[in-house]
């Protein structure tokens, strides 16, 4: 996609490309060492990525995280995906943020917890479970259709042989 900054890597410094993912540093990182994992294929949200590929991305994110632990002597790492504009996504192209952390680094991703009553929690629990049941329901497998007997005269000849 020509307009996409993550496809063109405008405002990003490429580190390396490996197995259909580009690893880059943003020009404006949260902190030095902030790495982005950008699928080469232009996909807007994670739901568009096949399951197995997404699983592999998480494995690779862990590897990048370990590399940051080692190379920067980081004391921790955050792995963040912003899936959708409301979640903070700035460009319509999936990316995984891997951010090295240190004590008193000035970053804070913690949220203020909300309070829900028992009824609200139970309602939400039910709605999520129902949706997952639909999502994970095994697809109905159609029984194999019986093969049509072909009108092959050679077969007929075979049958005639006493």
């Amino acid at each position: 996609m020509t307009d996409c900054k993550l496809c063109s890597l405008e405002e990003y410094l490429k580190l390396i490309e490996h197995e259909e993912i580009t690893y880059a540093q943003p020009h404006k990182p949260a902190i030095p060492g902030h790495v982005l994992m950008i699928p080469k294929q232009h996909v807007a949200i994670i739901e568009q990525i096949p399951d197995e590929e997404f699983g592999k991305m998480m494995v690779q994110a862990n590897k990048v995280s370990m590399a940051l632990f080692e190379s920067l002597q980081a004391q921790g790492t955050n792995i963040i995906i912003q899936n959708g504009i409301s979640a903070g996504q700035k460009d319509p192209h999936v990316c995984v943020h891997v951010i090295p952390r240190r004590e008193e680094d000035g970053l804070n991703f913690l949220w203020v917890p909300k309070t829900l009553n028992e009824e609200e929690m139970s309602t939400i629990e039910l709605r999520i479970k129902e949706n997952l049941t639909v999502q994970l329901k095994p697809k109905e497998v159609e029984p194999p259709k019986p093969e049509k007997v072909t009108d092959d005269y050679l077969l007929k000849q075979l049958h005639r042989i006493p």
């Binding site: 963040i80 912003q82 504009i85 979640a87």
Partner: peptide
Amino acid sequence: DGTNIFIAN
């Protein structure tokens, strides 16, 4: 409208 996937190590 969206989701965050967040890991703290």
